[in-house]
Design a protein around this nucleic acid. Structure first.
Lengths: 322, 322
DNA sequence: TCAAAAGTGTTATCCTTACACCCATGT
DNA sequence: ACATGGGTGTAAGGATAACACTTTTGA
């Protein structure tokens, strides 16, 4: 590594002029009794843990860990980067400055210890009630969102724009008999934002419009949360990340319930079990549950060896024989 | 959007203390006559286009476009974010400052115009010669990299570390009869870096060690390039991004050659054609090529409609019937 | 006629999906 | 007995992979 990491062919203007403030933001996910939980801060639980990146931080990830620990008392395990974006910020005077926000997705387990600090876990469906399709499509989708989105679409001045809005809404929310796609979390939030159906969209306006859908969050934290949920819903399909959320030992139904909570959809039990066992993701412990009801279930643990053996995902390109 | 985008529960220290310099770096890919090309700058073509994010830039992406255009004369189309990382930088005096690097992947076409400025395209296999398996595994892998990597593995003090190094190398490079996985570009580069087989790894050392494998780049640009290639090799499998690199009209063989160039592997022609046509990614133009040799081929164009209709990828979870 | 590339047919195999059914335990 | 959850069998359908083969052009 060099001291001057970027040498462009052009002149380098004086640096101070465009230096930026860097914020780290965490979407921390764990399974709670109330469903898929995210770690929140602030009094009405409307913010994600976050804080500025400081010179004392050894790296971006260390800075993130430090802030989350300081603000919630929770220690992070698995972390991956989500997205980086920039906004204009205003300093005390007239001068403007940049704010760079670097967001991360973290997966952990809740500690049931009697620790001094109780981290504030909230179900992510509090913020995105339209995302939980485990009991079929929620009423809010057909009763409220669909008519409002269509009204918004028809409100466009030009025909092609109307058509495009209708189509985007139909794809994102599964209107007109289309399938629900649980991965389109961000697209759905963005549509609701554009249609001013979420509180965040009406902040800059004078129009004290009707905040309709779900609990809102400060700044753009809910958009970041949407990004995190989308990433996780996509990733559980091709990489064994669910196990970061599971206790060391679990039954297959517990595993299934977790995947269902994350994806917001019900799964087919026999086929789910075969899928897991066929991929050799788990191994029996030999124990069974002393469950209160029903036949005792075998207990399993994650086969950590799979992380070494395979790289999990397969091809999809029709390779020719070597 | 609010002016103060992040409100933590903690005190906010004075800002200037930890403000950071922000750099934008682009991995710009296009198909050239010499294979998969990346856009380079600098005299021996050892740098990616890059520049600082400035207050005048409307957004990160606009800043990136501006720098690439200014440094290479090339206009960008498709852009996606790759990764953000941080390094410590030294200012003039003793004071340290942060440098945040935000990297992007861009896909374009080369312009065959007689423009004043000729952008400097280089085959990415100049920098990663071990990644091209279109004519089978390159000699360098078996002749040089394998013995050196094994020597490096055996150089570890402890047995478990030796074992782990051997296994990582075997998985990444397909030793011991394992399949080659073209997506592990970054893992391979990191292994070679750890084993000090790339020039970048020997810079801080006094040891004027032997730079073995491929053309090196300044700072960590080659690592960023590896990240971009890996992302692209992965993405062409589940999203129709190849077409960003194709001319408006093309034959199926040209399309196949492009995918082969990107993935570094040969594909099975009949099955490739069926795959493309089955997914309805293209439509015939009605024209055929006036090709110099062989039977004239039908010309196709990308069906842009697929971007609206489907979201392309399928499920992978065993959903229960609604 | 031959080389080179375009293009079609067909089969074996694997994975996914759906349906039907049996097992073990507590109340 | 029956409710609840655990667990197995199997067959249809689709996608993939491998093989063999025909077609159309220019040299």
């Amino acid at each position: 590594m060099q001291d001057q990491p970027v040498a462009t062919t052009k002149e380098k203007p004086s640096r101070k002029a465009h230096d930026a403030h860097v914020d780290l933001i965490a979407v921390v996910v764990a399974m709670t009794d109330q469903g898929p939980g995210i770690l929140t801060v602030g009094q009405p639980n409307t913010a994600l843990p976050s804080g500025p990146f400081e010179l004392g931080h050894r790296s971006l990830q260390f800075g993130l860990r430090a802030w989350v620990e300081q603000q919630t008392g929770h220690q992070l395990g698995y972390i991956e980067q989500l997205y980086t974006f920039a906004d204009r910020d205003r300093l005390g005077e007239q001068r403007q400055q940049r704010v760079i926000s670097i967001s991360y997705l973290a997966l952990t387990r809740v500690e049931h210890s009697a620790a001094s600090r109780k981290p504030a876990w909230r179900s992510w469906y509090d913020y995105f009630p339209w995302e939980d399709h485990r009991s079929g499509a929620p009423a809010v989708v057909g009763d409220i969102l669909q008519p409002r989105l269509l009204a918004w679409a028809e409100g466009a001045a030009h025909v092609p724009v109307r058509r495009e809005r209708r189509q985007r809404a139909a794809i994102a929310f599964g209107f007109d008999g289309r399938d629900w796609n649980e991965e389109l979390v961000l697209q759905r939030y963005e549509l609701l934002y554009e249609a001013a159906l979420v509180e965040e969209a009406t902040r800059s306006e004078q129009s004290a419009s009707l905040p309709i859908a779900g609990t809102s969050m400060i700044a753009d934290h809910r958009r970041i949360l949407a990004t995190g949920i989308a990433r996780l819903r996509s990733k559980i399909k091709y990489r064994p990340v669910v196990f970061e959320l599971m206790p060391p030992v679990f039954t297959l139904l517990q595993l299934q319930r977790t995947v269902e909570a994350l994806s917001g959809r019900l799964l087919h039990k026999p086929n789910f079990r075969r899928l897991i066992e066929q991929h050799e993701l788990v191994e029996e412990t030999g124990e069974t549950t002393a469950d209160t009801v029903g036949r005792p279930a075998k207990l399993f643990r994650f086969r950590h060896a799979v992380l070494d053996e395979r790289v999990v995902a397969g091809t999809k390109l029709p390779l020719s024989r070597a």
